[in-house]
Design a protein around this nucleic acid. Structure first.
Length: 323
DNA sequence: AAATAGAGCAACCGCCACTGG
DNA sequence: CCCAGTGGCGGTTGCTCTATT
């Protein structure tokens, strides 16, 4: 009752990959009708195709439509998909409306073949966007691995920050973006120093309590790309500073800045005790690089001192004390 | 060079929501 | 309100290509 048998069940209707000839027939038929399709069910007959109407619709919407964008997904698109998925779940068609020229099927496939695996490698549940328990995480962030991979601490925190993409968390993630990439990179400590330079730049522009961790000769090691980012980072924060005009120690936001400062100290400690391995036994995979890739280019930066009520920094520091 | 495994993606299937008679 | 017809969506399959053994 209710549903009529689909024409697809007709044994005579062709299935499987479309031929060029069939594509051409379908495109020409739709063009002939001004790009409009009255009834998909009736289309195959009027177009002279031995296909199910559903199959025709799918072929048109997912492949033949003239406004479809081809090629690899950009980082920007990937970030958007992750953000939208965090809020919408597997609503592929809704997500697709936010990505011009991309189909729901394409996004779904990209999610399942790329993003999903990437998140799993990062220790993030692709369904809930929450950090996976250590025993379920591909990173296996158990006590032993943490002892051998001190950057895992920051990394786990970064992964956890993906769980909700509100502004405060994005800001946290963004500072981590500044801090993390070098840890897993071949540039090792000098890269981390570069990231600390970003934190310092923030300090210099805001008057916060981030200690100056860099010596002049260390600054000379910095990579140009990082310097550019540092500059932008500082500029953005200057704007924020001018808007908020809240620099006085003793205010409620001051404590949060102190927490951030302590994070920088923790990172500095990593820099002095840990040299990034060359030819890591874990292969070329770098959690830091992947995470950074998800967040670049930097999003607009909220005031660092807005973090006061957040437990994020506190948890990082508590974890670091446990090591 | 052949076999096998894995990744990527187009296409299919079944269910559901909407619409009009 | 009911029901048939249809379009659309999300999950899944299976084919093809590439990398690895």
């Amino acid at each position: 009752m209710g549903r009529s048998p689909c024409c697809c069940r007709d044994a005579d209707v062709k299935k499987g990959p479309w031929t060029e000839e069939e594509d051409k027939t379908l495109v020409e038929h739709i063009k002939k009708h001004g790009g409009k399709v009255g009834s998909w069910r009736g289309l195959p007959k009027s177009a002279g195709l031995n296909r199910c109407g559903k199959s025709c619709r799918l072929r048109w919407t997912n492949y033949l439509r003239p406004d479809i964008k081809r090629g690899n997904f950009t980082d920007e698109e990937e970030r958007l998909i992750i953000t939208l998925h965090a809020g919408l779940g597997n609503k592929w068609s809704t997500i697709a409306t936010h990505l011009e020229g991309r189909t729901d099927n394409e996004i779904k496939n990209y999610w399942n073949t790329h993003i999903r695996k990437k998140l799993l490698r990062m220790g993030v549940d692709p369904v809930t966007h929450q950090q996976l328990p250590p025993d379920q995480s591909h990173r296996h962030l158990n006590a032993t691995s943490i002892a051998h991979l001190p950057e895992a601490l920051l990394w786990a925190a970064a992964a956890a920050s993906l769980s909700s993409l509100d502004t405060g968390v994005l800001m946290q993630a963004q500072l981590l973006q500044q801090l993390i990439p070098a840890i897993g990179s071949n540039y090792g400590t000098s890269g981390l120093i570069a990231n600390l330079a970003a934190a310092n730049a923030m300090q210099n522009s805001s008057g916060s309590m981030v200690p100056n961790l860099l010596l002049e000769d260390q600054m000379n090691c910095l990579q140009p790309g990082y310097l550019c980012n540092t500059s932008n980072f500082a500029e953005q924060h200057v704007v924020q500073e001018q808007l908020t005009n809240d620099t006085s120690p003793g205010t409620s936001s001051f404590a949060a800045a102190e927490q951030a400062d302590e994070l920088c100290n923790t990172a500095a400690s990593f820099a002095s005790h840990h040299v990034a391995p060359v030819g890591d036994s874990a292969g070329d995979w770098s959690p830091a690089q992947e995470f950074a890739g998800l967040l670049e280019p930097m999003m607009e930066l909220p005031d660092l001192r807005s973090l006061e009520s957040d437990s994020f920094w506190k948890e990082i520091l508590e974890d670091s004390y446990r090591l």
